[in-house]
Amino acid sequence: MSFINYSSREINCKIVYYGPGLCGKTTNLQYVYNRTNPDAKGKMISLATETERTLFFDFLPLSLGEIRGFKTRFHLYTVPGQVFYDASRKLILKGVDGVVFVADSQISRMEANIESLENLRDNLQEQGYDLDKLPYVVQYNKRDLPTVADLTEMREVLNTTHVPDFEAVATNGTGVFDTLKAVAKLVLTELKKGS
């Protein structure tokens, strides 16, 4: 749910990174955080377990610049990917304006990708959202690993609706900003339509 403030001339939007455990959601945010000017970002908050698995969420506030005198601010969140944190995932989806689905390209994680994507659809639906009507992009992460699934195959299974999609290596930043820009652009375009 975007928040448009005429008084401070700000547009605020919420983007959620979703995907199976260990697919690299937190790594995406960390890369964005490390590569953004201090004046364009706030503190990154990670509510994580002692083993650095996301427990509730990561949060990164980001400014992308001005449009017609309005400052655009994006709040990036990640969900915890581990299956048993489903209740938390639902909470974080509340008020979402755009979704990035981060898939783990390793063949061994294809099941987990599919399950997580179904879980995303279900949890959105529960709150009255339809993934097909939401600004939404897909990222195939960990392309640097030796045992990755074929890209065409991943597309067929994980991007049946042909939304913008990107190959990525979040640890070195490949594809990270392309993904973010694509979803941010979709969110602003949706706002312009006046939802």
Binding site: M1, S2, F3, I4, N5, Y6, S7, S8, G95, V96, D97, G98, Y129, D130, K133, L134, P135, V187, E190, L191, S195
Partner: peptide, 15 residues
């Protein structure tokens, strides 16, 4: 459909 948005206007903001 990106959920209903919140809009804040000058008048209410000041209040």
């Amino acid at each position: 459909m990106a959920g209903p948005q919140i809009v804040m206007y000058e008048e209410e903001f000041n209040q």
